[in-house]
Amino acid sequence: MKRALTNPSFLLGAGIVLLVVAAAVFAPALAPHQPTAANLRARLAAPFQPAYLLGADAIGRDILSRIIFGARISLVVGVASVAIAAVIGTIIGLLAGYFGGVLDAVLMRLADIQLAFPFILLAITVIAVIGPGLWKLILVMAFAQWVQYARIVRGQVLSIRETDYVQAAASLGAGHARIVVRHILLNALTPVTVLATLGIANNILLEAGLTFLGLGVDPTIPSWGGMLADGRNYIERAWWVSTFPGLAITVTVLGFNLLGDWLRDTLDPRLQT
């Protein structure tokens, strides 16, 4: 832990993530304006003035306030989608790796398909049918990504299952449930933690991208991807409308990536790329 406090990646990553979480939690107290309040007199107001620190958008909504509230959407989508995918994937990966058989074969074929089918195309197909929306987006991400977690847990289980200490536990009469949960699961969680942290970064990017395309979060809710879609139309007249939300996405994603890299280097040096 002492080493963590002097590691620049950890400090910067954790600092950014804490800042974004604080913005999301205390949004109503921090935001200087209502994020959805239009003010026609402030249409495309320039940034760096006391009333509108980061400027205003085409209908005079305060960009800073919308960025602060937008942190809520990015975090909810990033964390919820990864949590669902990681839990489902870990359970299925454990079962497939430990018992093998049909489940294992099906899992590996699904993994092949998933590798060959980019998420954006899957999301376009599914969202075209079920329509856009915050929770639908989270479920589509979880549905597409649990396989990654299952695959990595399966690999871990296969190698841990053969280790001496698991064999010893089995010969001492430990049941399947005890071996899987106590001896295998806890050891298999290391790569899952790393993958999940990097996964949050990735899903924040995906959410912003799909919302930008109009396939993500409802455009009336302040979200970073939605703000960028608006800003694209005013790029000739008002650079700030699309610059600041993009900066918010990049910095947030960078924070989670730094944390993920640090976790990977600390928890499991073998996973280094």
């Binding site: 970064a201 990017l205 991807g225 960028l228 996405i249 990049t250 990536n257």
Partner: peptide, 8 residues
């Protein structure tokens, strides 16, 4: 590069 949204 890993953290930049491509559309931004």
């Amino acid at each position: 590069g890993l953290s930049f949204p491509n559309f931004w």
